[in-house]
Design a protein around this nucleic acid. Structure first.
Length: 561
RNA sequence: CGGGGUGUAGCGCAGCCCGGCUAGCGCGCUUCGUUCGGGACGAAGAGGUCGUAGGUUCGAAUCCUAUCACCCCGACCA
C-alpha cells in the first residue's frame, strides 16, 4: 500500500479529549476517530488491526470446534422479556423509539432462541456457536477511548451441552483457546477467578491485563499467578500481637484527635496498637466495625458477612448511635453489634475511641472488654502484603477485563424453554456456557503494553503491515526506482508493506513510521544507495543496520521469522 | 445521576474577568520557488454564523438565561 494514497490521518499534536495512552496513539496514528461519546469509527489502518485480531480469534475458536454465526444487532424486545433481562439491563439497553426493538448488548437470548428451535436431541450436542459482532450498551459514562464504548466489537461464544460434565469440557476448551488467543496477540495477561455476578451461573474466569485505564482493582502475585479482585482478595499479614499482660482500661483526653495518624502522633504509639471504628447500617441497624490501624473496610466482604443492605452511617447519624462523632468512636460501651477484623483477634492493650468526643480509651483487651465481639476478614489487601498462596508478595493495581468465560448453566435455556430429549426420551434444559472477548480492548491493551515515546510498537501478528518502506527524497530517480523494485519484491514475497512515497521530508517520514509502529522499517536514501545499501530498523529495539540491497529480502524474512 | 472543567478554522490554543472598528497565533492545507537522513525555508493564499437558542445593549466571542455536546472525578458497570 502506498501511503500517499492511503487514508491515514496522523496527528502530531495530542487531541484534547484523549487521556489514556492507547486512545492517544490510536488517534494520532490515524486508526480511529470519534463520532460521538463512546462511539468510534475505525479508519482503514485501525480496521486492519481489528481484522488481524478477529482472525486470530476465529482460528482458535474454529480449532475447538466453534462455528461462526452472524446475528442481528436489532432484536425484538419480546425475546429479551422472556428472560427478564430488559429489566435487568435497564437503562444500559438501547431501545428503539419507533418499533419494539432493542439493540443487542450481548446475544445469549438470540443464540438460545436458535438452539431451542433446532437443538432437540442429545445427539445434536455439544455445540459451540460464536460470532464477532457489534454490541450496544448505553454506558452512563463512556471513557478511555475504545476501552469503554457505547458500541463495541465483541467475540461472543455460547456452548450447548447435555450435561454438566459436558459444560466443564466446553469451558475448558474455551479456557485453553483464550490463552492461545491472548498469547498470540502478545498480551501480558492474567486470569482472575470471579464470582459469577448478575449473569447467574456456577463458575467463571476473567482474563485481565494491568492498566491504569482499568476499571477493576485486582491483587496479583507474579510468582504463583494468584489473582483476585480486590473485593474478595486475601493476603498474609500479621495480626496484632497480644501482650503477656493486659493493662486495665483508662480514658485519655485527646483534644482534636480524629484520625489514627493523629492519635499515633499524640500518644506516640504505633498504629498497630489502635483499633479504628467504622459504623455501618445493616438493614437500618447500626453495626460497629473495628479495623486494625489504618486498614480499610472492604464493603464487599462486609456485605457478605452481614447479608442484606449495608451503607456507612452518615456523619449526622453517628452521634445518636455512639454518643460521639467520627474520630472518637470505639467498642467500649458500644451497645450494638460489633464485628472486628481478624487482625484484631485476641488483641490487648489497644487504643480506640471512647464514644465521647475528644476522648480515647487505652488498655482495651478485646477478650475481656468487648463481650459478644465477632471476627471476620474485612480488610482490603494492599500492595506488598504476602500472597495467600505462596511466599511472595501481592501487587494491587487497576486492570482491564479483556475476556470472560462463564458457566451459565440452565438460566437461559430454562427461561426460554430450550430443552432436549435424552437417551431415555426425558426432557432437560440445555446446559450452556458463554464466553466473551472485547476485540477493541485487545487492540487497546496491546498498545497500552507496547509503545514508547515515539508511538506504537506492533508485533508481526497484529501489525497492519510487516514492513514500512520509506523512500527519502523520491525526486531522485535512483531512490524512487529502487523503492519501486523493493516494494514489488516485498509484495511478491507476500510480505505486507506500507510504502511511504509521500513528498515530505525525511524527518516527517521517520516520525510517522515510528508512530505507526510497523515491526520493520526499510529506509532507502541517496547516501546508502551509492554503496548499494539501505538501512533496516527494528522498531521494537530501535537497532538499525545497513544491508546490501541484494540481501535485503532475506534479511527482512529473517527478522520477521 | 452528583461534583469539576471545556466548547473560538482540520488539530492545538489565545482573546472573555473589564463589551467597541476587519476575531488572532502555532501546526496543518493550497500555489510557486528553494530544500531533501529525524516533523525544512521564503513568498503568496484559502479557511471561522466564536456549540445552539433567546435576552441585555447603540454595539456581544466577551454580560445574563436556557439548552446541547465533550472531557475529568465519583456513583454505576453482564
Amino acid at each position: 500500500m502506498r501511503l500517499s494514497k492511503y487514508f491515514v490521518p496522523t496527528l502530531k499534536e495530542v487531541p484534547n479529549d484523549a487521556v489514556v495512552i492507547s486512545h492517544i496513539l490510536m488517534l494520532r496514528s490515524g486508526m480511529v476517530r470519534m463520532l460521538s461519546a463512546g462511539i468510534y469509527s475505525f479508519l482503514p489502518l485501525g480496521y486492519k488491526v481489528i481484522k488481524k485480531i478477529s482472525e486470530i480469534i476465529r482460528e482458535e475458536m474454529d480449532a475447538i470446534g466453534g462455528q461462526e454465526f452472524h446475528l442481528p444487532a436489532l432484536n425484538p424486545r419480546e425475546i429479551w422479556e422472556e428472560t427478564g433481562r430488559v429489566e435487568a439491563f435497564g437503562d444500559t439497553m438501547f431501545h428503539l423509539k419507533n418499533r419494539e426493538y432493542v439493540l443487542a448488548p450481548t446475544h445469549e437470548e438470540i443464540m438460545t432462541f436458535h438452539a431451542r428451535n433446532v437443538v432437540k436431541s442429545y445427539k445434536d450436542m455439544p455445540q459451540i456457536w460464536y460470532q464477532i459482532q457489534t454490541k450496544f450498551r448505553n454506558e452512563p459514562r463512556p471513557r478511555s477511548g475504545v476501552i469503554r464504548g457505547r458500541q463495541f466489537l465483541m467475540k461472543d461464544a455460547y456452548s450447548f451441552d447435555t450435561s454438566w460434565e459436558g459444560l466443564d469440557k466446553s469451558y475448558e476448551l474455551h479456557d485453553k483457546a483464550y490463552r492461545k488467543i491472548f498469547d498470540r496477540c502478545g498480551l501480558k495477561y492474567f486470569v482472575v477467578g470471579a464470582s459469577s455476578g448478575a449473569m447467574g451461573g456456577t463458575g467463571s474466569e476473567e482474563f485481565m491485563v494491568k492498566s491504569s485505564a482499568g476499571e477493576d482493582t485486582v491483587a496479583y502475585c507474579e510468582s504463583c499467578g494468584y489473582a483476585a479482585n480486590v473485593e474478595v482478595a486475601t493476603s498474609r499479614i500479621d495480626a496484632a500481637e497480644r501482650d503477656a499482660e493486659s493493662k486495665s482500661i483508662y480514658e485519655i483526653s485527646t483534644p482534636n484527635v480524629h484520625s489514627i495518624d493523629e492519635l499515633c502522633d499524640f500518644l506516640v504509639i504505633d498504629e498497630t496498637q489502635c483499633a479504628k471504628s467504622r459504623i455501618y447500617l445493616n438493614n437500618d441497624k447500626p453495626v460497629l466495625i473495628l479495623m486494625l490501624g489504618n486498614d480499610e473496610v472492604n464493603e464487599t466482604k462486609l456485605e457478605k458477612v452481614l447479608g442484606g443492605n449495608i451503607r456507612p452511617a452518615h456523619p449526622e447519624e453517628l452521634k445518636d448511635i455512639s454518643g460521639a462523632d467520627a474520630g472518637s468512636i470505639g467498642p467500649v460501651g458500644f451497645s450494638g453489634r460489633i464485628i472486628a477484623d481478624n487482625r484484631l483477634k485476641n488483641a490487648n492493650n489497644m487504643f480506640s475511641g471512647a464514644n465521647k468526643n475528644d476522648y480515647h480509651i487505652g488498655g482495651i483487651d478485646f477478650n475481656r472488654d468487648i463481650p459478644n465481639i465477632e471476627y471476620a476478614d474485612l480488610r482490603i489487601v494492599q500492595s506488598g502484603e504476602g500472597c495467600p498462596r505462596c511466599e511472595k508478595h501481592l501487587e494491587v493495581f487497576p486492570a482491564i477485563e479483556l475476556g470472560h468465560i462463564f458457566k451459565l448453566g440452565t438460566k437461559y435455556s430454562e427461561a426460554m424453554g430450550a430443552n432436549f430429549l435424552d437417551e431415555n426420551g426425558k426432557e432437560h434444559p440445555i446446559i450452556m456456557g458463554s464466553y466473551g472477548i472485547g476485540v477493541e480492548r485487545v487492540m487497546a491493551c496491546y498498545i497500552e503494553q507496547n509503545h514508547d515515546a515515539n508511538g506504537i510498537i506492533w508485533n508481526k501478528l497484529l501489525a497492519p503491515f510487516q514492513v514500512h518502506l520509506l523512500g527519502l527524497n523520491l525526486k531522485k530517480q535512483e531512490v524512487s526506482d529502487t523503492c519501486a523494485i523493493i516494494y514489488n519484491e516485498l509484495k511478491h514475497n507476500n510480505i505486507e508493506v506500507l510504502f511511504d512515497d509521500r513528498d515530505v521530508t525525511a524527518g516527517f517520514k521517520f516520525n510517522d513510521a515510528d508512530l505507526l509502529g510497523m515491526p520493520i522499517q526499510v529506509v532507502i536514501g541517496e547516501k546508502k544507495l551509492k554503496e548499494n545499501k539501505c538501512e533496516v530498523k527494528v522498531r521494537k529495539t530501535g537497532e538499525r543496520f545497513d544491508v546490501e540491497l541484494s540481501g535485503l529480502m532475506n534479511k527482512v524474512k529473517e527478522l520477521l521469522g
